[in-house]
Design a protein around this nucleic acid. Structure first.
Length: 287
DNA sequence: TCGAGTCCTTCCGC
DNA sequence: AGCGGAAGGACTC
């Protein structure tokens, strides 16, 4: 019995509420005891324990249950700051989402805020995605790359995305043309995958890191947005000296290297815990 | 109510 | 290479 237990990995519970409300996904809403969300061509229903039912029955490890959390938590717990954040949100997960939806979501997120990103993406889904019914509710699937690539800039602009409309169209074109392929990105290492998606207009350093972390299994990716820079300045100023508020391309790369040196190959998880903690400290709104 | 500042950045042109 | 400015529009104070 004892031997069996020691070999068995203890299944860590999922904190669904906080995982969905941590800036990773946007097309989600709560109805009674369930969360419902659009994930590419699928609609998911999630209960409070993280059990998933879906419209299409696609099998995805949405909450990354296959990750080894004992190892990850141990690996990233380098200091009091991370340890406290982990303690506060023990069931916080990195979400593995539909890559195309993720890519468009974070192009839209650039220089924006959660409320606006959500509205923009809802508009895109409603306008270009297929209407479906699931569990007596109406949803719109996220449009596929081919559909979006054929939309006019004006139509996309009408979703409220402004100057990002042409990026969205171009990104969809590249995605649909198979110049960029998911399987290839997944099997590439972090640097190669990043290089490949950085070709797409609207994808800079930070957006690329979000896409890699939230849909392409690159757990060493550590998106450095305004908030993370602020967090590093506040808690880690001695470890990572940050000279300016708007960091350049080169500074970003150097900083990322230092971060992975420090937090290890699961740095992305550290980022998620820190980000969640600090946004809650400032009582920022989520979905 | 109003206006100014802010916002999970990227791109462009110098 | 490195910088400053612009890009929509909703939200906040």
């Amino acid at each position: 019995m004892k031997r069996f237990q020691s070999k068995m990995q203890i299944k860590q519970p999922i904190d669904v509420e906080n995982s969905i409300n941590s800036g990773q996904v946007f097309l989600w809403r709560k109805n009674k005891e369930f969360w419902y969300g659009v994930n590419g061509q699928d609609i998911l229903e999630v209960n409070k324990n993280g059990k998933i039912k879906s419209l299409q029955n696609y099998k995805t490890d949405f909450f990354r249950n296959n990750d080894n959390f004992d190892e990850i938590i141990k690996s990233i717990s380098k200091d009091k700051i991370v340890k406290n954040a982990v303690k506060k949100y023990p069931g916080l997960r990195i979400i593995k989402q539909d890559p195309f939806q993720c890519l468009i979501s974070f192009i839209v997120s650039s220089n924006s805020n959660i409320q606006k990103i959500k509205t923009n993406l809802e508009n895109i889904s409603q306008k270009f995605g297929e209407r479906v019914e699931y569990k007596d509710q109406e949803f719109f699937l996220f449009p596929n790359a081919k559909t979006l690539s054929k939309a006019s800039i004006t139509e996309i602009k009408n979703c409220g995305v402004g100057y990002r409309a042409k990026f969205i169209k171009e990104a969809s074109k590249i995605f649909a043309s198979e110049k960029i392929m998911i399987d290839d990105l997944k099997s590439s290492d972090y640097f190669d995958a990043k290089k490949k998606i950085r070709i797409i207009p609207g994808i800079g350093n930070k957006v690329a890191d979000c896409i890699l972390l939230f849909s392409l299994d690159k757990l060493e990716s550590f998106p450095l947005d305004r908030w993370m820079i602020r967090i590093l300045e506040k808690y880690y100023s001695k470890k990572f000296q940050i000279d300016t508020k708007t960091i350049t391309e080169k500074q970003y790369d150097i900083l990322h290297e230092k971060i992975v040196d420090y937090f290890g190959l699961y740095a992305g998880y550290a980022q998620q815990f820190l980000f969640k903690m600090e946004r809650e400290n400032y009582q920022k709104k989520w979905l």
